[in-house]
Design a protein around this nucleic acid. Structure first.
Lengths: 185, 185, 185, 185
DNA sequence: TATGAATGAGGATTCATTCAT
DNA sequence: AATGAATGAATCCTCATTCAT
């Protein structure tokens, strides 16, 4: 009842504070003290909800993954190009909504020791994203071949810059990507 | 004499060890102890050569930047497409040679607190890279417009994946990029 | 409640241990490890109560100053000589009670770098002491002039020796000072 | 010959640099590196002349003591008051000339651990000073008794303040001391 | 559930001292 | 005689984590 709700809220507060700081300053540079201050809770309380800093990181990934998964809309019109358009919009929307998580994702993937902490979580989410992309591409019949890996790098580069730079014209970039795909049809 | 050479060698050993570990595990996750072990020197000796961990990071950037700058070949044939081809080859070659530095560069740009340490160094090098790219694009006359920002995201995405993934087919990606440019001419 | 009391006690334990060691061996020669051992606490706990070694020194000064200020009794009989007598007794009593602090005070005043740490604290307390002395002297009408600076040096010399030497006959010295003053009346 | 002279000069340069820094910042706060910088010599060279930092401190005391001893003039007129006058002038002159040493002396005497380093040196010099003073007092026949300990505290207090304060009127203080002695005759 | 006092290992940095040149 | 590279213990301080309340 009441207690459970409050408990859930506290757990979320901690998770959000951690995500916020991890994404801003990195996992290693963020201390448990920083997180509890950001979450407005006492130092020890965090350990009532998360067994360790590492585990907290894992739960951030799991929870964000859940959220992202459920955010992907099922798209199934007859026009595969239109579908891809929707897919791209959907993807960028998700990145916008979870900007902090994606920053964390991008910072972590170049750090061997942190990747090791969440080996399976990271792999699962990576695979999911790539599969999503490939399933859409596969539905399009291209006259000249399109390399999915290349498309992935393209999208990833755009997302990267969106995460790093201020006022990044992500819509414009989306148009560029779509044009590229159309040119291959 | 002898001493100066040895001194220079030790300084380089430290810098390489640091770059190695910073790029692998991140700046914050790498301790001075780690670096001195990796460099096979005693803990305190590092401070005979670098005044602090932060300063060591800065020197890595400055030195790598020097190296990268001097690695860019002057390209000036009549054919701008060919020039761009050479430019891309040159760029990817530089990334291959300085893989560790580029990993560090990519890991750092998502971390506010580390970026702050080397604000000016990071900005200088970023600007240099973008200018290089733009000067090449500007020499090409496109029939349909090409967004340099998009091209940059594309190249950056490819480099990112090359840094992260094993056996990444970077040559293939280069062909894709070139094809894209040609299609715009 | 309980916690607050215990917390206050720990804070005091640390402060006393620090004062003890600072006065015995000097500020620079005393390590945080020394202090925590003397206070029977763990190394890190000190930092729950004092933000740094320097700040701990400052707090010692502030707290001792409070104590000293409140120890000075208001003396106001008609006989200024008698008042001075009481003032001297009072002063020596305070020095006896805060022997460690006065040792610290005397050790610090010859050390430029430590004085710089507590510039304002040191000046405030010095001024207070001199003012106290002067206000008493000014109330006495001397037939032959008495140099307050000389009187101050005299008292300070006595206190110095009391702090350094064992079994120092401070009462006898007090009589000597009083006799000197009377001789000037 | 040449070499010996130069060697002697280097040894002196080190000793003076050390005395300078010890007196300004304290023994513990002064590093060997600081001293060698101040003396314009290389880091290791110090150890060709002094076996350790502690031993360097001892030699400072020994050498200064030699100098001070030889500075005390033999005074032997018929008038003991006049002798005391000369003795005081002599003493203050010595303090003026060896200001740094006296600052060190005063800083050290409140620091147990440093005193332990030069137990015998410190005691020897203290005893010498007190004996000097007492031998002069003993030659004066006082009508009312004069406490030598008190006189010592008085002189010490004046010297202390001279060492600490800027523009201290030490001559004026000397007159005060002499007047005090005359008043006792 | 919630607090924050307590621990001691580990962080960056400085130290006195040694030693090959 | 002179250099400064090299060592590792010790410095101050922060950290993740535990636990009594």
């Amino acid at each position: 009842m009441r207690n459970e709700i409050k408990s859930k809220q506290t757990k979320d507060k901690i998770l959000n504070a951690a995500l916020n700081l991890f994404s801003k300053n990195g996992f290693e540079a963020t201390s448990i003290r920083d997180i509890s201050k950001e979450a407005n809770i006492s130092l020890g309380l965090l350990y009532n909800y998360y067994v360790s800093k590492n585990e907290l990181l894992k739960e951030i990934f799991n929870k964000s993954f859940e959220q992202i998964k459920s955010s992907f809309e099922i798209i199934d019109s007859d026009d595969p190009i239109k579908n891809f358009d929707l897919y791209l919009s959907n993807t960028f929307e998700i990145v916008k909504k979870n900007k902090e998580f994606w920053k964390l994702m991008h910072s972590i993937r170049v750090s061997e020791n942190v990747i090791n902490i969440l080996k399976s979580e990271y792999e699962e989410i990576s695979l999911f994203i790539i599969n999503k992309l490939e399933s859409h591409i596969n539905k399009i019949k291209f006259s000249s071949p399109l390399n999915p890996m290349f498309l992935f790098a393209m999208i990833d580069g755009v997302i990267s810059h969106y995460l790093i730079l201020e006022n990044y014209p992500i819509q414009e970039m989306k148009t560029n990507i779509l044009d590229y795909i159309k040119s291959k049809k």
